[in-house]
């Protein structure tokens, strides 16, 4: 059995900076999606029995990078065109902003986590692959707990809003925080469908959490809104809430 034990959303980095100075010191050099994912993960790992042994499944942003990185990209490509690159240097911190597995690496370092890890890339709908992977691994008894985290932004070029989401799953039935109800992940099913998508690593998971919070019956069959899918499937997440 696989249970959703805790979840967190984070969209306010100023609050993180003010209220969690130690966490902020760890994440301040990263780009916004990574900062938001790590801040959300920090919230849910308080409920983990052993953060060092949980499987870590991390979604790369669909809008990766940062305003600094985009600016730098323009400098490089225009210099390339004019043959004026010379000895141009890149700030290594900005190189990190382009890296797809950064949140996973930073999380592992912070929590001394050597466990199984799965980085899923910045294509539309990979969040549901992440939930499928959680279900596969915990159902098979490979781990007792698994973190699924995502951070993304509306656009990387201009510092527009972002969102981080983290979900902690367990093989033990503990009340889901913050609802204080038992939420069991039953299955994820798919059927073919071609639909238009809005690629975003975190929005789909946030919408699922909102739906869980509003659901009152025991059985929940959550049909993922088309915009949050991979564009090739109708996806249904089955849950039991008690």
């Amino acid at each position: 059995m696989v249970y959703l034990m805790a979840a967190a959303r984070q969209d306010d980095l100023a609050k993180v900076r003010g209220e969690k100075p130690e966490l902020w010191r760890q994440v301040r050099r990263y780009n916004k999606p990574v900062q938001l994912a790590l801040a959300a993960a920090d919230e849910v790992m308080r409920f983990a029995s052993d953060p060092a042994t949980a499987a870590v499944i991390s979604l790369a942003p669909c809008q990766p990078g940062s305003a600094d990185l985009y600016s730098w990209g323009h400098v490089v490509t225009s210099g390339m065109a004019s043959g004026t690159l010379g000895n141009l240097r890149m700030n290594p911190t900005q190189t990190l902003h382009a890296v797809d597995n950064l949140a996973m690496s930073a999380f592992a370092i912070a929590h001394r986590n050597h466990a199984y890890c799965l980085g899923l890339g910045g294509a539309a709908g990979q969040a549901w692959c992440g939930i499928e992977a959680v279900h596969e691994r915990l159902s098979a008894g490979l781990e007792e707990e698994s973190l699924l985290m995502a951070g993304d932004q509306d656009a990387a070029e201009d510092g527009s809003p972002g969102l981080g989401v983290a979900l902690l799953f367990s093989t033990r039935a503990k009340p889901f925080q913050p609802l204080d109800r038992i939420v069991r992940l039953v299955s994820v099913s798919r059927s073919p469908a071609i639909v238009d998508v809005v690629p975003h690593a975190a929005n789909g998971l946030a919408a699922l959490l909102s739906a869980i919070a509003e659901h009152r019956d025991r059985v929940m069959s959550y049909v993922v809104p088309p915009a949050h899918t991979d564009g090739f499937s109708t996806i249904t997440v089955a849950l039991e809430i008690s």
Binding site: V99, C129, E132, G231
Partner: peptide, 28 residues
């Protein structure tokens, strides 16, 4: 001029002719 190439979009284009599962791996 300037072209931003999205790895995610490239994956989705490649994945369109496959059945599932379609998982994009990101582990450097």
């Amino acid at each position: 001029g300037f072209v931003h190439r999205s790895a995610g979009r490239c994956f989705s284009n490649l994945a369109s002719r496959f059945a599932g599962p379609r998982r994009m791996i990101a582990a450097a």
